[in-house]
Nucleic acid binder design. Structure first.
Lengths: 226, 226
DNA sequence: CGACCATTTGATATGGATCAAGCGATGTGG
DNA sequence: CCACATCGCTTGATCCATATCAAATGGTCG
């Protein structure tokens, strides 16, 4: 059932997680020259579920959502990707999600075969690819745990996830609309909105603008996240 | 409560070359001789979340659940593993779930370093490991989609998942109790039980015994699964 | 300014959780 | 072999969190 046509190797040498800055830097710098930066407009499709995963992608600016559509029209968002994030790396041959730009975005598009060829020669690159897969698996597992919680816990988890990208910042600027958040968390927009309002009333967050969130009590959020 | 003392050793030098489709038969036969078969009693712990993933495991008889415990005592089951299934293969260094025997089980326990060393020399093994990871990722993604559906859809999805192991059989023999199913689907036992009763009333399934389920209308289940 | 879209808020409905009781199978000791 | 305790499962009654339906508000851009 599974046909794999590309040859690549993924040496697992010593340390995979917790790579030093220098190590991942080489991957980052090398990959940055491996493809063109392509602009996508808001809501523009980057790839579709089931397509061959011929490329992988790195967000230069803007942001991206991956998602699946169910037959009845429901949409499940698998993840959000912000500048610096790499997405579209599949273990199998095909994309298991679709991907769209959330806002106008610049995306680095890199031939998978080129990366794989590089990984075959450079153990560091290979290791980095392997640990990207590990992170993706981790994200999925965390998401599963999130989805069985209450609405408040889900929203808190989402906010902390967004905040973790700038751990020190107290301000979150969301690129995505409420519907995106709702489809990520398995809730409705109304519930997301109401829950955010509740968090604002309890002075856990502030909402100066609908897509700008200030964390006023990160501890309270973390507690909800348990 | 079963305590399993495991000596940790430092792992893994070698490579995991990927690619080129082949049958997993050689992998299966080779792996079967790489470790001892260990008996675990019902509810016995096989490994705990956060432990070093020093081994991987193959179910010889019985069955296994993997799970996470939340701080408030809720339990999320990540997956069920039946005879022939391999589990405990992690991309990172540590187990992200705990694992327990659901019933008295015989488990083949294989040193991860040994498998990795083998994979370094044998591209077929490496490819098989890679595609096991792909399947695991796929399972997680499918689970995410399942968890945002209605109770009836989740139960239908669960039954089809169990049935897919013997695609032609019309009879499912469940090793796990209702609580396990509930914690897998993010529902309560009562809801699982009621939903099964509903499916029986609508003649979609039959329940001769509580853990034996006959599929009387697989099409109806599949439709729910969409 | 006016049209349009995103977001919030309100009122009501409902699916699943919770609380509670009953039932059936399995095992144990008398 | 039966009485009884235990455990897993089902069923019933009620409650509550979230969905649904509906309307108002606000923000953006022509």
């Amino acid at each position: 059932m599974q046909t794999q046509t590309i040859t690549y190797r993924t040496p697992v040498t010593g340390s995979v997680p917790g790579m030093s800055q220098a190590e991942s830097c080489s991957f980052e710098t090398q990959i940055d020259m491996m493809g063109p930066a392509i602009p996508f407009t808001r809501n523009g499709e980057i790839y579709g579920e089931g397509e061959r995963a011929e490329y992988l992608y790195k967000v230069l600016s803007g942001s991206v959502r991956t998602y699946k559509l169910l037959t009845d029209g429901r949409r499940q968002i698998g993840g959000f990707y912000l500048p610096g994030d790499i997405f579209g790396l599949e273990v199998g041959d095909d994309h298991t999600f679709s991907a769209e730009a959330i806002v106008d975005s610049k995306i680095l598009v890199i031939k998978r075969s080129a990366v794989m060829a590089l990984a075959a020669r450079d153990a560091e690159i290979a290791s980095e690819l392997w640990s990207m897969t590990a992170r993706e698996l981790q994200r999925m597992q965390d998401h599963i745990v999130l989805l069985v919680k209450t609405a408040r816990e889900r929203v808190a988890g989402f906010l902390l996830e967004m905040a973790s990208l700038q751990p020190l910042a107290t301000e979150i600027n969301l690129p995505m609309c409420r519907q995106d958040i709702a489809d990520y968390l398995g809730l409705t927009i109304e519930t997301v909105s109401r829950t955010l309002s509740q968090l604002e009333n309890s002075e856990t967050i502030a909402l100066p603008k609908s897509r700008q969130i200030l964390l006023r009590n990160r501890g309270a959020l973390s507690q909800l996240n348990c």
